[in-house]
C-alpha cells in the first residue's frame, strides 16, 4: 500500500437529478503505483475525462473516494484543494492550454509561483525546457510556438512542481502524427527519467505502445483493468 500513489474507491459520478440523472461513472475502483505509466482508454462519452477530473480534483465524485498519495482530499476546503492540486498534480490538456499572454518560460514557472516557492525555479524551468528541446523558445509568447512545442511546454509546466501524478487528457489529440509521437516518447522518457506517475486519457491506445497499465472504460464502468508486466531494470 505504501507505494500506491492513487486509489480510486467505488466512485460514482451522477449528473442531473431524479428521472434525468445520468451515471457518468459507476462504481469505479482501481489503484496506481508510484512511477507507473497508465492509460485510461475508452470511446468518446465513456466517462474517461470525467474520471480524470475526479482524480485531478477538478470535480467531486457523487459517491466514493479518491486517495492521492494516501490523502483523501474530500474533506479539504476550496483553498486547500487548490494548494493540493498545485503541489501533488500536474496537468496536460488536449489543447496545451498555455496562457497566451505569458512567455514559454513564464508559463512553465507559473505553478511554482502559485506555490510561492521561487527558489531555483528559473533554473529548474530552463532545465526542463532544455530537456524537451525548447531552450531557444523560452522567451517567446506561448501563442507564438507550434502546437507540438506548446504541448511540450505544457509537459514542463506539469512537471515543474514535481507532482505525485501527471494527468494528461488527450495530450496528442490536437497534434499531427509526428508531433504526437514525439510527445508520447517525451512523456515516456520523462516517466522513466524522473519517476513521475503518468495517467493519460486517450482514445488512441496504439499510439502509446507499451505501458504499465491500461484501464478501459465503457459507459462509466471499468470493463478491463489490464496490468502489463513490463520488465524493469533492477
Amino acid at each position: 500500500m505504501a507505494d500506491l500513489v492513487l486509489e480510486v474507491r467505488n466512485v460514482d459520478k451522477i449528473f442531473g437529478e431524479g428521472e434525468t440523472a445520468v451515471y457518468a461513472l459507476k462504481n469505479v475502483s482501481f489503484s496506481v503505483k508510484k512511477g507507473k505509466f497508465i492509460l485510461i482508454v475508452g470511446s468518446s462519452g465513456s466517462g474517461k475525462s470525467t474520471l480524470l477530473n475526479m482524480i485531478g480534483l477538478l470535480d467531486r465524485p457523487t459517491n466514493g473516494q479518491v486517495f492521492i498519495d494516501g490523502i483523501d482530499p474530500s474533506n479539504l476546503n476550496d483553498n486547500q484543494i487548490s494548494s493540493f492540486r498545485n503541489s501533488k498534480l500536474g496537468f496536460i490538456f488536449q489543447f496545451s492550454n498555455l496562457l497566451s499572454d505569458l512567455t514559454v518560460l513564464e508559463n512553465v514557472l507559473l505553478p511554482r509561483q502559485i506555490q510561492g516557492t521561487d527558489t531555483n525555479a528559473i533554473e529548474e524551468a530552463k532545465s526542463l525546457l532544455k530537456t524537451v528541446g525548447l531552450e531557444n523558445q523560452m522567451n517567446k509568447y506561448a501563442n507564438k510556438v507550434s502546437g507540438g512545442q506548446a504541448q511540450r511546454v505544457a509537459i514542463c509546466r506539469a512537471l515543474i512542481n514535481k507532482p505525485a501524478i501527471v494527468l494528461a487528457d488527450e495530450p496528442t489529440g490536437n497534434l499531427d502524427s509526428v508531433s504526437a509521437q514525439t510527445t508520447v516518447q517525451l512523456m515516456k522518457s520523462l516517466n522513466k527519467k524522473l519517476g513521475h506517475t503518468f495517467i493519460i486519457v486517450t482514445h488512441d491506445r496504439p499510439q502509446f505502445g507499451d505501458v504499465d497499465k491500461i484501464i478501459t472504460i465503457k459507459d462509466g464502468r471499468i470493463v478491463d483493468d489490464e496490468m502489463m508486466e513490463v520488465p524493469t531494470v533492477n
Binding site: 494548494s83 492540486r85 498545485n86 492550454n97
Partner: peptide
C-alpha cells in the same frame, strides 16, 4: 474564462 480555468486547475485560489 479559459485562462481562469487553467490557473484554477494548476492551483490558483479564488482570492488569487
Amino acid at each position: 474564462t479559459r485562462e481562469i480555468g487553467i490557473m484554477r486547475a494548476i492551483g490558483s485560489k479564488r482570492k488569487d
